[in-house]
């Protein structure tokens, strides 16, 4: 069984059918890039993986366990899966370091000193340990997003979800975030990334999928995906964003 197995996934918002039978496998250490037009259900799909959204039909297995199993503790599932949002969503009332150490100390019971040491190391890894004691409002967008990545990594997740992490950023800040993500990918992190940064996809993705209206239309390794798309819709989409 693959590390993440999505089988025949359907989701409705009321009567609106957002996900129409998604099936996909992601292996450990694999980087999957998800792209597609606005409203196609990309965010909804990855949010299902850590149960920020509930789904009505189909199954998702994570590391061999059905995430919808009644015996499954949703909090410990989420602790194993990190997520980074488009709008950083940092806690404005806590310092950068506290943002990073909150979950490890409260969920895992890591002692404070240890958590802070680890937090500083993570901030170093994303290149902003000198800002550790500032508040989020004092940082630039790119810096905030890197804090958000450090915050997710602090739980030592087995997998990371990214939901358009660079699309709220000014152009000059996009690369600093992408570089952190590339490092992560090279270190062997399993990643599901919703992004339209095709340079990033080309460089580190193992596979790219194209979603439209709640379905996966196209799925291929990046080289093939960009040079030789089969679907008309994919071609059109690529033409627009490239």
């Amino acid at each position: 069984m693959a590390f993440i197995e999505i089988n025949g996934l359907h989701k409705w918002f009321g009567s609106f059918h957002v996900l129409r039978g998604i099936t996909n496998q992601v292996e450990q250490g694999e980087v999957l890039v998800i792209c597609g037009p606005s409203g196609s259900g990309k965010s909804t799909l990855i949010r299902c993986v850590n149960r920020l959204e509930e789904y009505q039909k189909g199954t998702i297995f994570f590391d061999g366990r059905d995430i919808h199993d009644p015996g499954m503790d949703v909090n410990s599932l989420r602790a194993e899966i990190g997520i980074v949002f488009q709008q950083f969503n940092l806690y404005p009332h806590l310092s950068v370091l506290k943002n990073v150490t909150l979950a490890p100390t409260k969920v895992r019971g890591v002692p404070r000193a240890e958590a802070e040491e680890m937090g500083l190391a993570l901030l170093e890894r994303v290149g902003i340990h000198d800002q550790a004691h500032k508040y989020p409002a004092e940082l630039s967008g790119g810096q905030q997003q890197r804090v958000a990545i450090a915050r997710a990594l602090a739980m030592k997740p087995k997998c990371m979800l990214f939901d358009e992490p660079t699309s709220a950023l000014d152009p000059e800040m996009i690369n600093e975030v992408l570089n952190v993500m590339k490092d992560l990918a090279r270190d062997g992190m399993t990643m599901l990334c919703v992004t339209h940064e095709m340079g990033f996809a080309r460089e580190v993705a193992d596979r790219v999928i194209f979603m439209d209206a709640g379905e996966v239309l196209e799925e291929a390794p990046p080289l093939e995906f960009f040079t030789n798309p089969t679907h008309e819709r994919t071609k059109l989409f690529l033409k627009e964003i490239l």
Partner: peptide, 21 residues
Amino acid sequence: KNQLEASRATGLNFLQAYRYV
């Protein structure tokens, strides 16, 4: 609303999310 979501996403339970965030 996304503050609650962000804190739940790191594994805090409902009460912890209210209490700390």
